[in-house]
Every structure is written in structure tokens, then in C-alpha cells.
Computed example of a mutant assay.
Amino acid sequence: MNARRLASPPHTSGLVGSSAATCRLRAEIARAAPFASNVLITGPSGAGKELVAREVHALSARAGGPFVPVDCASLVGELMASQLFGHVAGAFTGANCDAVGCFQAANGGTLFLDEIGEMELPLQAKLLRVVQERVVTPVGSYAGRPIDVRIVAATNRNLLREVREGRFREDLYYRLHVVHLQASALRDRPDDIPALAATFLQQLAGEGLPCCTLSLEAIAALMAYAWPGNVRQLRNVLEQSVIEAAEPTITGRSIERLLEEEQYYDEPLTDESAKELAAALPSPPLLPPLPASPAWMTLAELEREHLVRTLELTYFNRAAAARLLGISRQALLRKIERHGLA
């Protein structure tokens, strides 16, 4: 009997929505994915850039290989170099054995460099060499190892502005910016919101939360909101609404109340409102003075100290802390994670 090769099922797009922006993005991904060229994805935080990267990988010839995501904002210096390029035993304190870096782990597949604009300049130079030569050298070694990796990078920054201001290497920018994909802000594609909301509610039900639907008034309220936190914020609001819902159908009033709270915390904090917020907070415990340090405090240490004091002042109310610091809650959460304060 002749063996028959079973046809693989058609790929189902992970991009949800039917707006003009989403349809255009799907077409651009389908056109660029089959090639091995590097891809740069731009767009605001929470707009789904990693989902776009996974779609590029899924539609490429490398779909059977690994997809390895790396958060460039979470690690710095030698630790980041080790994570990207690997290291050999004895390369630095604590390196007790050889380690395979993300480049080698992604061999034959796709390496996704998220928040590439946060990468330090010295590390950018090392990355450029790997991108150019397709050879990775582990930390502490002189022996290069050939790799076959497609790089997909993402950023919420304007990298050309970063290049002009000396914070990003121009040569690396052009190596990564071969194919450009733009993830649009959610406020620019409100037609996608009903489909996204239905998908998120289904996912939440699969995670053990109550199975809920949205009323027409609730959908209208979601579509009228500006969504500064984009798709990530939409999922967060829906999760809150499901937890608080007394009935299987989420009402418009419930959504409006949650969005009013979101809008309050997304407003910029003026000097006057900062004073009012600080005055409204309960008196915090007496904070200890800054410890005397024999060396000059680094910027990272100073930021961590200020974060700790702000969180203590607000009794670890992250929304209030973000307002006092003049940053978004998403930015605050990233900083908390980066400094190990979670």
C-alpha cells in the first residue's frame, strides 16, 4: 500500500479583528513571512507586537523550528550578554557550567527581541556583530559558533529618533529594519474590539473564570474608550468585569464604571493633583534614611530606591504610585519586575 502524506491543517491567524488596519497587517505579514529577512515591529505598548512576531514565525519556513522570545528591558550588562550569547564555565562569578544562549536555542527558528530600544549600547555592538556574521561567541570564549536564526525585533520607541540622539546604533537599526510592520493602537481600530472582547472572554472562561457575554451597551462603551493601554488593557478590564459580574451578561454600567476608574489613573498628574494625592494618603511609616554608601550610587540603584520609597508611601498601591511617579501603570510594573520588587 502506498503511503500517503497527510496534509497539514491550514494555519489559523492569531490576529483577531476585521478592521482595515488589521487586514492590512495580515497581508503585510503574509507577504514578508516566507523570506528570511529580519523584521522590525513598531507600535505602542500592549498593542500585540509579540503576537505579530509569532504570526511571522508561524507563516515562515521556520515554523517547525523554535520561537524564542527575549525581553531586552529586563536584563542588563553581562547577564543580558550571557542570556543572548550563552557562556562557558568560569566566564564570570556563578558560571559553574556552560550555558546555551538564546541565539543557539533559536537555531533554525526565530529569535524575538522585544523592547530592542531598551538595549544598552555595548550590547548593541555585540548584537550587530552576530547579525552581520551569523556567528555567536559565548561569554568567556573565543570560539565562534555558526547560527541560522531569523531576528524579529519590536519596540515602542521611535528608533530613528533614538539613532539621532545617540542611544541606538544606526548600523544595527538598518540591519534590523529590513521589513517593517506596524502594530496599530487599539483606539485606531475600534472595529476590532467586539471580536477581541469575545476572544478574551472565551480565554478567561477556559482559565476557570465564569463564562460571560457582553451586552450591546457594554460593547458600545468599550468601543467609545480611547484605550491608552491598548489590547493588554482591554483584557485586564474584561477580566475585572468577569470577576465582579453578578450575572452572565456584563452590563454597560459595569464596563463604564471600570473605565471611569481606568481613565482617572491614566490622566497626567499635575503638581497640584500630586499634592492632593499625597495629602489624601494615610501617613506612611517613618522611612529610614538613605544608607551611607562608600561608592557613588548608580542610576539604577537610585531608581530602585525611589521606587521602594514611593511604593511604601502609597502602601504598595501601584496605581497611586504610578500617578505620583508620572508614569503609566504598565511602565511601573515593568520597573518593579526589573528591580526585583514584585
Rank of each mutant, 00 (worst) to 15 (best):
T137V: 15
R145Y: 08
I116V: 14
N96M: 13
A95T: 04
L127H: 01
Q83S: 12
R150G: 10
V68W: 00
I147A: 01
A91I: 06
F85R: 07
T137P: 04
C97A: 14
F67H: 04
F85H: 10
T137N: 08
C97D: 14
T110A: 00
G101V: 06
A153W: 00
V76F: 07
G117Q: 02
A105N: 11
I147P: 00
Q104Y: 06
L127M: 11
V76T: 15
A81M: 11
Q124S: 04
I151Q: 02
T110P: 01
G90V: 02
M80V: 06
H87P: 08
Q104D: 13
P146D: 09
V139F: 01
L123D: 11
G101W: 01
S74Q: 12
Q104I: 13
V76C: 09
V149F: 05
Q132N: 08
P122L: 12
E133P: 03
K126Y: 00
L113G: 02
Y142H: 15
G140S: 07
E115P: 01
S141I: 14
V88G: 12
T155R: 01
G140L: 05
P146R: 02
A95E: 09
F92M: 10
Q132A: 08
G86E: 09
L127Y: 02
A73E: 13
L75C: 06
I151C: 04
A89Y: 07
G108T: 07
S82P: 08
L84V: 08
G86I: 11
E115S: 02
A99P: 06
N107I: 03
L75S: 06
D71S: 15
P146F: 00
N96F: 14
G94Q: 13
V152Y: 00
P138C: 08
V149D: 06
G109P: 10
A95K: 03
E115D: 05
C97L: 12
R129P: 02
D71A: 14
L128R: 01
I151V: 14
M119G: 00
T155M: 05
G94R: 11
C102S: 14
P138Q: 07
L121E: 08
E120Q: 13
I147F: 00
L123G: 08
A89G: 15
M80R: 11
P69S: 04
T155D: 06
E120C: 08
A125D: 12
V88P: 10
G90F: 02
P146Q: 04
C102L: 13
R129F: 01
A73I: 13
V135L: 13
Q104H: 10
N107E: 12
I147N: 01
C72S: 08
G86L: 07
G94N: 13
V149E: 04
S141C: 13
G77T: 09
L84C: 03
V135Y: 06
Y142K: 15
L113E: 06
A95Q: 10
F112L: 07
D71E: 15
V139E: 03
T110R: 04
A99M: 12
T110C: 01
A154F: 09
E133A: 09
V130P: 00
E115M: 05
V136E: 11
E120R: 10
A99E: 14
K126R: 05
C72R: 01
G117H: 01
E78R: 11
I151D: 00
G144D: 10
L111M: 03
I116G: 07
E78I: 14
V149Y: 04
E78V: 15
L75W: 10
G117R: 01
S141P: 13
I151S: 05
F67I: 09
V68F: 02
Q132M: 03
L128H: 01
F103Y: 09
I147G: 02
